[in-house]
């Protein structure tokens, strides 16, 4: 938990996060996020008060464990319905600008 206190919220951190999240932020947005990040992280640090030693995380329990399906084939969706929403498509493929491959 000591990590939280060490977090240094600055424009560089915000920029790294934005890059991971594929968000292209403006200078103003970056500045705004720096101050709001600080507020919000400061606020959630209230959780440090809670002793969670030996407390299991909540996601481990579920009321409906092991829901599985049999290996049966179901009908697929017509290709044209899938492609109807596509920004660009050709010959049944989704088309995008070329993925950059270094050699």
């Amino acid at each position: 938990m000591s990590k939280k206190d060490e977090v240094k919220v600055d424009e560089q951190l915000v920029e790294e996060i934005a890059s991971l999240a594929r968000l292209d932020l403006t200078k103003e947005e970056r500045e705004m996020f720096v101050s709001q990040f600080k507020d919000i992280l400061d606020y959630v640090s209230i959780l440090n008060e809670v002793n969670t030693e030996d407390v299991p995380p909540a996601y481990l329990s579920s009321a409906n464990n092991s829901a599985m399906r049999e290996d049966d084939i179901e009908e697929s969706v017509p290709t044209k319905e899938f492609l109807a929403n596509a920004p660009q498509a050709k010959d049944d493929y989704i088309v995008i600008p070329r993925v950059h491959i270094e050699q």
């Binding site: 084939i73 179901e74 969706v77 899938f82």
Partner: peptide
């Protein structure tokens, strides 16, 4: 398997099958 991991779409030879024909939401 006959069908995919998380849906009922058929597993096909991805080299010869028509593109985007074995798909669902």
């Amino acid at each position: 398997t006959k069908s995919k991991m998380f849906c009922g779409c058929e597993v096909v030879d991805s080299i010869t099958a028509k593109p985007n024909h074995y798909i669902c939401p």
